[in-house]
Design a protein around this nucleic acid. Sequence first.
DNA 1: ACCCAGGGTCGTC
DNA 2: GACGACCCTGGG
Length: 288
Amino acid sequence: MEEQEIVLKDVKSFEPKHIFECGQCFRWNTEKDGSYTGVFGKNVANINKINNDIVIKGIFEGNAKEICNSYFDLDRSYEEIKRKLSSIDEYLKESIEYGKGIRLLNQDLWETIISFIISANNNIPRIKGIIERISKKYGKKIIWHNKEYYTFPNEKELSMANVQDLRKLGLGFRDIRVYNTTRKIMKKEVNLDELKKEKDTKKVRDILLSLDGVGPKVADCILLFSDLKRLDVFPIDVWVRRVMNELYIKQEDESKVSKKLIEKIAYDKYGNLSGIAQQYLFYWKREA
DNA sequence: ACCCAGGGTCGTC
DNA sequence: GACGACCCTGGG
C-alpha cells in the first residue's frame, strides 16, 4: 500500500497531545519531534501539528481523508461545544482552556470493548503494554518506514487465544473476561453491528453490561470513546470522582461520595454534553 | 524490603 | 447496596 498524506488547514480544536493523552485511547505514542504515531483499524499514521496545520501521513486501507474525517470526529464543532460548556462554570472553563485541543475519537467498537475490559483496576502503562502484546501476537503486521506495526486483532483472530495464552500476555485476572466476551461476540450472542444501529442508549448500555468484564464505568467508556459516540454518558472513575468532589461536593472522604450524586450533578450541570465535560475535567485533573 | 494504587468488576453476604 | 478479592507493575 502506498503512503498517503493529508494536511488539515487551520483546524480549530485539534492538539495531538490533548487528543492522545486524555485517556481515551491506548495505541498512540509520541515521537522525538512531538508528533504521534499509532494504529487504528488497518491504518498506521503519524500526526503532527506544524504551525496551525495538522499533517497526517500514513498508510490507509482506503481514502485517507474519509478515514481521518470519521476517526478524528472532524465533522463535529468542538468550538461550539466548548462555548456551551465554558459558560456553565469557571472550573469547566479553566479545564477547557487547559485541554482546548481535545477531540473524542471514533474508535472501533470491538477494540474499545476489549481495551476497556483490560483497563479495569489497572494503570495506563500496563494497559498499553498488554494491548501491544495482544496485537503483536494476534493482529496483522503492517510495515511502514521499515518499522513493524500490528493491527488490533478482530474477534476471530483473538479467539485463537485461550485463557492461559492471555494470562501469559499479562492480563492477570482479566484473562477470563476477555476470553468470555470474545466468544460471546464471535457467536453473535451480542451482535455489534446490530448494536451500532440501536438508537436507545439505555438499551445499548444494558447489552454492553451483559458482557463479562463490562460494568458501569467500562460501559460508559465504550459508549463515549467508540464509534457509538454517546456524548451524554459520564464515566465515573477515581479521577473524575476526585475532581467532582473537590469542585462541587467537598466531602472529606471522596470514596464515600455516592455515584448517584456525582451523576446527578453532572447531568444537571453538563446535560447532554456530560461525556465531553468529563474528558476536559479528567485531562485537567490528571495532567495539572 | 515493603506497601500501595492503578480509568473496576464480580461474587457473596 | 456494601465489602473483599483479584493479576500484575511501577513508584514511594
